[in-house]
């Protein structure tokens, strides 16, 4: 799949192709197409979103998935060469090559409205704490542990806020530092 003539060998001198952190490589369709060890496949990505959040495959079908940076999967809906050495293609979407895959805040913000499970709905005060980056007890949750989509209601509909890590009755906000906002505090909520 490397067609730019670059040497696909590892830094350690072994012959197997490896991830190149400086460029975007399209994910292989299935495990049978995989050339770079450890690289997730398109099939695994689609299956993961469906299994974890109930997001139908048809939602993500039009998109291309790429890896740049070990385990960092990007989502893109345009044309590009493969591989491609540019600054960005679409948005960072999913962290893989670790035991528990983790969606990005932006992925959840963009596609979380299609989720049908593992979405924890927060009340206004909880939502304000969550987007400020605070951890908080959520005793009522009796679903899966691990990465959840935190959402709240705004102008009549459920809207995803970001990714939370649920463990031992506590919802840990995973909103990145640069995106944390003191939004609810304006209304005098704690």
């Amino acid at each position: 799949m490397s067609d730019d003539g670059s040497d696909p060998s590892n830094d350690d001198g072994s012959d197997s192709p490896s991830n190149d952190g400086q460029r975007f490589d399209r994910l292989p369709e299935t495990a049978a197409d995989r050339a770079v060890p450890g690289r997730p496949t398109r099939e695994e990505v689609l299956a993961w979103w469906e299994d974890r959040f109930g997001i139908d495959r048809s939602v993500l079908e039009p998109y291309t998935f790429l890896e740049k940076g070990a385990g960092k999967v990007w989502i893109y809906r345009g044309e590009a060469t493969d591989p491609c050495r540019i600054e960005a293609l679409g948005m960072a979407f999913l962290r893989t090559r670790q035991e528990h895959w983790k969606p990005t805040t932006r992925a959840v913000s963009r596609f979380g409205r299609h989720a049908t499970r593992n979405v924890v709905e927060l009340d206004p005060a909880e939502a304000a704490r969550f987007v400020a980056g605070e951890d908080q007890p959520i005793d009522r949750w009796d679903g899966d542990w691990g990465y959840l989509i935190a959402a709240h209601e705004l102008s009549g509909d459920r809207e995803p806020i970001g990714v939370g890590l649920y463990l031992h009755g506590e919802l840990r906000s995973r909103v990145p530092k640069g995106s944390r906002t003191d939004v609810g505090r304006l209304d005098g909520e704690e």
Binding site: G78, A88, G90, R106
Partner: peptide, 15 residues
Amino acid sequence: RHNAERLGVTNVAVT
């Protein structure tokens, strides 16, 4: 890139 991701844009290639 920050703005494009915040606004949920997926069809942009940044050079």
